[in-house]
Design a protein around this nucleic acid. Structure first.
Length: 432
DNA sequence: TCTGGGGTCCTCACACCA
DNA sequence: TCTGTGGTGTGAGGACCC
């Protein structure tokens, strides 16, 4: 793609030039706002490093990672988020690559969410850089939705130096499509009565839940637009892509999306995974990494005040085949050692077909509040005395004071011990 | 071309039980 | 006792989203 061909380059999702027009100004039934930050990580980096303004900037890790965000200058060369770094750099060799700083993005995100919270309590944060608002209750105080949207955009720009786009519509799904079509730094209103006409201008990939595979499956039936999905009989649609997805897509295509804006969100699972710099053939190295991941998971469970009942592992081999195994425990846990022991057993049961490992992940599912969950002492806990969990809570405290690197599992701090990995001892790594 | 990390939801298969 | 059936829980994997 040639530089300057921006309209096609800026969005990850499919867009339609026809959809990006004035759909009227009737705001009577449109109380849902979708606020989406523009090239969020990259924009935050430009605020921190103004010298990079105007240059193609890519936020991402090493050669084996993908693009997390790119400025619009980089996108003009065809660089997009989720694109492999190697490919992005071939498309735009002059790009400035900046490593991600998630803490900085989190701080800006918290600030932006505070701005949204000052408009209405009905804010549903979807990810670090986007949120839905139901502004029905704020209309009398602040004016119609588009006035509220412009207020939000002005506040975000003046307080944080970054821009956002806002979609205004009758439902969450359409509001999200509006913000996508308003990008960058814009606003789009689709009146309730124009919803179906707006949707009919879009390609099928614009529908929520239609990715590459579903798009291909529908294309085999000659269905490539939202209009064609809407005109298709639900039963046929369900035969093509499944019962639940078929009914869901048909509803979306007709603008039916009854989901309310729900503030507050409870996690269903907490996990961690990592891709090795080079594929690993030594099971002990994979196991050592799994120990770190189990430790990370458990610390996050404790921080969230939850325990999990199912431990799941994920392994990706060098041929990009992904395998998963899971095991449900008798009593839920937030103890890293318990998570690791189950993960290790699951890892041992995976047939890698002799291939080295590219990625390993550990996840804990079936979460419930720790205070409501029964606790079963681990075998190494003396009755009434301090146990494994207490040790890990102490580790949490050390990390809170001195940073995550201050203390870690001895296995990872001292190198892999091939002879006895049945116990995990915490050792100080560095205390400065 | 060469594919991250964190998460959700769905489908299908299978075991177990009434 | 054997067989069929439906509900439920679990496990594996796929697809999708940001």
């Amino acid at each position: 793609m040639a530089p300057g061909d921006e309209d096609a380059a800026v969005s990850r999702g499919p867009r339609s030039a026809q959809a990006r027009r004035d759909w009227g100004d009737d705001q009577s039934g449109t109380s849902i706002l979708h606020v989406d930050m523009d090239a969020f990580y990259a924009s935050v980096e430009l605020v921190r490093r103004p010298a990079l303004r105007g240059l193609p900037v890519i936020v991402g890790g090493g050669q084996r990672s993908v693009v997390l965000a790119a400025t619009y200058e980089a996108r003009a060369f065809g660089v997009n988020s989720a694109m492999p770094m190697a490919r992005a750099l071939r498309a735009c060799p002059q790009a400035v690559v900046v490593p991600p700083d998630h803490r900085a993005y989190h701080e800006v995100s918290v600030g932006v969410m505070e701005v949204l919270g000052s408009v209405t309590a009905l804010v549903e944060q979807v990810s670090i850089d986007e949120a839905f608002l139901d502004v029905a209750g704020a209309r009398r105080r602040m004016g119609p939705p588009t006035v509220i949207a412009e207020h939000i955009r002005a506040q975000v720009r003046s307080q944080f130096g970054v821009t956002c786009s806002v979609g205004v519509a009758a439902t969450k799904f359409v509001a999200k499509l509006c913000s996508e079509h308003a990008k960058p730094d814009g606003m789009l209103l689709v009146p309730k009565a124009a919803t179906v006409d707006f949707l009919r201008t879009l390609p099928v990939g614009a529908l929520w839940g239609v990715g590459e595979k579903t798009e291909q499956a529908l294309a085999r039936w000659g269905v490539t637009t939202v209009a064609e999905v809407a005109d298709l009989d639900v039963g046929t649609l369900q035969r093509i892509i499944g019962k639940a997805a078929g009914a869901h897509l048909h509803d979306l295509a007709w603008g039916r999306d009854p989901r309310p804006v729900c503030p507050g969100h409870t996690d269903k699972s907490i996990g961690a995974e990592t891709t090795f710099d080079t594929d690993v053939g030594d099971p002990a190295v994979v196991e050592a990494r799994a120990l770190e991941l189990a430790d990370t998971c458990a610390a996050r469970l404790r921080r969230a005040g939850v325990v999990g009942r199912t431990v799941a592992i994920k392994v990706r081999t060098s041929d990009f085949r992904t395998l998963s195994r899971s095991c449900t425990l008798v009593t839920p846990t937030d103890v890293g050692r318990e998570v690791f022991l189950v993960a290790r057993r699951l890892l041992a049961g995976v047939d890698l077909r002799g291939l080295p490992v590219r990625l390993v992940g550990v996840r804990v599912e079936g979460l419930s509040r720790a205070q409501d969950a029964p606790r079963q002492p681990t075998l190494d806990e003396a009755v009434g005395g301090p146990g494994r969990r207490d040790a890990e809570l102490a580790v949490d405290e050390v990390r809170a004071r001195f940073g995550r690197a201050a203390i870690g599992p001895a296995t990872t701090a001292l190198g892999v011990d091939r002879h006895d990995r049945s116990t995990t001892t915490f050792a100080p790594v560095e205390l400065s």
